[in-house]
């Protein structure tokens, strides 16, 4: 079981959290200005990264706050946890075994 560092509560077991998918997908400010394809891209398409990935987590059985994490989708290693509004931590500049070039 993974462990996550909730930015509000500290290190807790994964079973307290729920996963919220890829992070920082802003809702378009003017939806009507988008074509169907652009809107569908916002709705459905996710980057599906093999490697370090910014994602959303909810401390569901804790403080109920959403926060962000950087996780390696191959090794499941977390390299950063940060709050909404925090400056974005850099993605680690490390190669990931088997990741597409």
């Amino acid at each position: 079981m993974l462990q996550l560092q909730c930015p509000f509560c500290g290190l807790r077991d994964e079973s307290e959290f729920s996963f919220g998918g890829e992070a920082h997908i802003a809702r378009p400010l003017e939806p009507d200005a988008l074509s169907d394809e652009e809107w569908a891209d916002y709705l459905f398409n996710r980057s599906n990264v093999k490697g370090f990935h910014r994602e959303m987590w909810l401390h569901a059985a804790g403080c109920r706050q959403w926060f962000y994490a950087i996780r390696n989708t191959v090794s499941y290693e977390f390299t950063a946890f940060y709050r909404v509004g925090d400056p974005l931590p850099d993605l680690p500049n490390r190669s990931v075994p088997g990741a597409a070039k």
Partner: peptide
């Protein structure tokens, strides 16, 4: 409740 929280906290904080 989850739905309301995610929008409020991450999109319109």
């Amino acid at each position: 409740m989850n739905w309301l929280e995610v929008w409020l906290q991450t999109e319109w904080p």
